[in-house]
């Protein structure tokens, strides 16, 4: 198993290296001169030339590419053109906000999606099944930014029962930084009020974000269960007198969970994309809003760093998923060349 994990991690490396090179290519196709952008407004040609030398922008392109790769590998993503601060520092404070939101959404997707899929399969072709089927296709058809606005309109503006925006009430400061997850850090510091407040603030964004995942998990669970129910051993067990519910839990759910784990990797990409919109609407100070701000202020350093960090997190999650899958079902590990 250890060898499999190592091999799987190594397989991710070429993709990551490619990603770093891709970001480098992106910095070079920008219209305009990065040195001029770094020098800022009202810079003299002499200043720009100095910056060009300082950042090695006068070197041959392949040399710059090597430098870029080396810098990224040592965790140096440069400084934001906009704020002058190291990009990595800004991302470290923002990544946990996005992860807290996406994990919450993922938990909701799984926690609601699997039971729904199961219900639909057990109620095959019944009313619940139809509702779940429609929901599972519809859930993938809703534009997350629109859903976010509609939920905000109803629950925060019209009925005023849920918070409008943010991770916590603005009058609170952030909890002392340990993990960057408000739910964990507030408990760590024993700030119960803040914990509850953060949880409350998480509801609308997480519900909005969980919908596509919920839909696809419900749908995969449903078809997984349906398929399993057709298996000979299940038919046999049924004939012997096992009830649907026992069957579902014993034989079927295990299969369904394997399927779900496979989906998580794909799901995470969708969640990150959705997070950009959801964060922008709920004013959630995560990577998504950071990316949008970077766009508005033409801060390509920040944008590339976000691209890179998200790519790395995405790759890491995919490796993790494969490993989990192999743990659940050792046959998978053997399949890989």
């Amino acid at each position: 198993m250890a060898r499999y994990i190592l091999r799987r991690a190594l397989l991710a490396l070429p993709a990551l290296l490619g990603l770093i090179l891709l970001t480098f290519v992106l910095t070079r196709i920008i219209p305009g001169d990065p040195a001029a952008a770094l020098a800022g407004d009202s810079a003299t040609p002499a200043q720009i030339a100095e910056i060009r030398t300082r950042y090695g922008l006068d070197r041959p392109i392949w040399e710059q590419a090597v430098v870029h790769v080396r810098q990224v590998l040592t965790g140096d993503l440069g400084s934001s053109i906009f704020s002058g601060r190291p990009v990595m520092e800004e991302i470290i404070f923002r990544l946990p906000a996005t992860l807290e939101l996406t994990f919450a959404a993922m938990l909701l997707s799984i926690g609601i999606g699997i039971p729904l899929g199961l219900l639909a399969a057990l109620n095959h072709n019944g009313p619940i099944d139809h509702v779940v089927r429609l929901l599972s296709v519809g859930g993938l058809a809703v534009a997350s930014f629109w859903l976010a606005i509609m939920l905000q309109l109803l629950f925060a503006m019209e009925w005023d029962v849920l918070p409008l925006r943010g991770r916590s009430d603005l009058a609170y400061g952030a909890p002392p930084f340990h993990t960057g997850f408000y739910l964990i850090d507030s408990l760590w510091a024993g700030q119960w009020a803040l914990f509850l407040d953060s949880l409350w603030h998480l509801v609308l964004p997480a519900v909005t974000l969980c919908l596509p995942g919920l839909a696809s998990i419900a749908r995969f669970t449903r078809s997984g269960v349906l398929e399993a129910l057709q298996k000979d051993y299940v038919l046999y067990a049924r004939a012997v007198g096992y009830g649907s519910f026992r069957l579902a839990t014993i034989y079927v759910l295990r299969n369904a969970i394997t399927v779900t784990v496979t989906q998580i990797g794909l799901l995470f990409g969708a969640l990150i994309s959705g997070a950009v919109a959801v964060e922008a609407i709920f004013d959630w100070p995560g990577l998504g809003t950071y990316a949008v701000q970077a766009i508005l202020s033409a801060d390509y350093k920040a944008l590339l760093a976000v691209t890179l960090v998200v790519g790395v997190v995405y790759a890491a999650i995919n490796v993790l998923v494969d490993v989990l899958q192999a743990l659940i079902d050792p046959r998978v590990a053997e399949d890989i060349r």
């Binding site: 918070p163 009430d169 509850l196 407040d197 409350w200 998480l202 509801v203």
Partner: peptide, 12 residues
């Protein structure tokens, strides 16, 4: 199990 039971924010 769904998060969000109405009295929470008032308490907070």
């Amino acid at each position: 199990a769904a998060p969000g039971i109405a009295p929470v924010p008032a308490q907070a």
